[in-house]
Design a protein around this nucleic acid. Structure first.
Lengths: 244, 244
DNA sequence: GAGTGGTCTAGACCACCAA
DNA sequence: TGGTGGTCTAGACCACTCA
């Protein structure tokens, strides 16, 4: 109903509604997997027309925060029940066929952030973090060696056995056990020679070329929650991306 | 006006309008850089409401085929007059600062498609193609060595001197001189050891790890127009990507 | 059949741009 | 001042899902 907020710094109504819905996500009013209220209900609640709510939801769906299902409702996007395997994992087989994926956890230790990790995670060097190492197997063969850094403040009491016991992806685990939802990530790729550890784990010679994928993942509020470095044997696999 | 095409294979009106506008792009009714008719004009032409045209244009703008400019009109997206440098070139400096970009052309020869090129370009092995080689300099330093393969049938009479004489990016050149508009691309990355040619051109040792970026670029009709392989020295630069 | 998201319309008004 | 895209509304109707 509020109309025409004349000029300086005009902000469309649907954008304000979008932020109100996002606030509901941040505050945990609706959790991943939940249905949010119908468009008509939200329209009544915010005192705007259904079309305006619709536009707000469209924007959030475009950012993959919400998922619309015709006839059923609009759901909070979740790492637990989706085909996000292609959304955050861009490593695929060269021939395009799908692999059986398996994660082998190596260690989980409490640690102090090095300068690099601290800068990526937005904390002071030396801050408490967890470091998790694992190998990703594609059809039984080790292809990616991941070193994952997490803010200790957000993942209190993280243990290797918990992660191992959990059925599902690691982001699904974070979401379910810690209420931390990875919503977006930035990756930076380089080619590097394999060091001794990676070479041993991936069954390669030291110095063999590896695809190094650095990732910073953020939550609803764009706060960095994870920094990971993946070392990938790109002999039979590659990093796939679409430019549009 | 046409309403309710009851069930089997229901197709929304705006989607049909979208395809009609796309047809205008394919047929060259509006060329890159042109303004297309206003929403009201198109609505009258297609006998639908302005809102429906709007939704069709929104979809095409989301695919980067059109660009909306409030108060001015809707334009056909062009490689000539945009900041697409970040759209198709994902190599950036590690520190995020921007580099001065320069392209040094090495050769352009007519040649027969090898099996790989033929399969990527959707033609028979041995078909006539052009092969262009160049080095991309970032602030004066050679960073990427590109080998570009183009269908001879689409780029008749391509000469090194033409490309060199042209002011602007290579895709801008293709668009202006050959009416070939690269609209979307798929990239696949690997880490590979430098061969003698790449090592020499990029000032590295043979065997040094390089980021190999294979790209297939397609036109409005999704036909592959270009296959290129870029070999990138990722010592001071990296391939940057956002996952959302 | 009731409820949800999805489409389409018609009309009013606003923000932006250029002449 | 007039034209363009952008927002917002109110209402009708359709497609999909599930009980």
């Amino acid at each position: 109903m509020e109309k025409t907020l004349n000029t300086p710094s005009f902000r469309p109504l649907y954008d304000q509604i979008k932020m109100l819905i996002k606030k509901g996500l941040i505050d945990g009013e609706w959790r991943p997997g939940d249905v949010i209220p119908s468009e008509m209900e939200l329209a009544a609640r915010f005192k705007v027309s259904q079309g305006t709510v619709r536009k707000a939801i469209d924007a959030l769906a475009a950012e993959n925060l919400l998922i619309r299902r015709q006839g059923k409702g609009t759901f909070v996007s979740s790492h637990s029940q989706e085909r996000i395997h292609t959304r955050f994992l861009r490593i695929v087989r060269d021939d395009g066929k799908s692999d059986h994926l398996e994660s082998r956890l190596l260690e989980c230790r409490r640690d102090k952030a090095c300068d690099t990790a601290a800068s990526y995670l937005g904390v002071r060097a030396g801050s408490a973090i967890y470091t998790v190492k694992r190998v990703l197997l594609f059809s039984g063969k080790p292809v990616v060696f991941d070193t994952i850094h997490l803010l200790a403040s957000q993942f209190k009491g993280l243990e290797l056995s918990q992660i191992e016991a959990f059925q599902g992806s690691m982001y699904s685990f974070f979401e379910t056990r810690y209420g931390v939802n990875m919503v977006r990530a930035e990756e930076r790729l380089k080619a590097v020679p394999a060091d001794a550890e990676a070479a041993q784990l991936l069954g390669l010679d030291v110095g063999a070329p590896l695809l190094r994928v650095d990732r910073v993942a953020v939550d609803y509020e764009d706060r960095p929650m994870e920094w990971r470095r993946g070392l990938c044997n790109s002999a039979q696999h590659c990093y796939s991306n679409v430019l549009a």
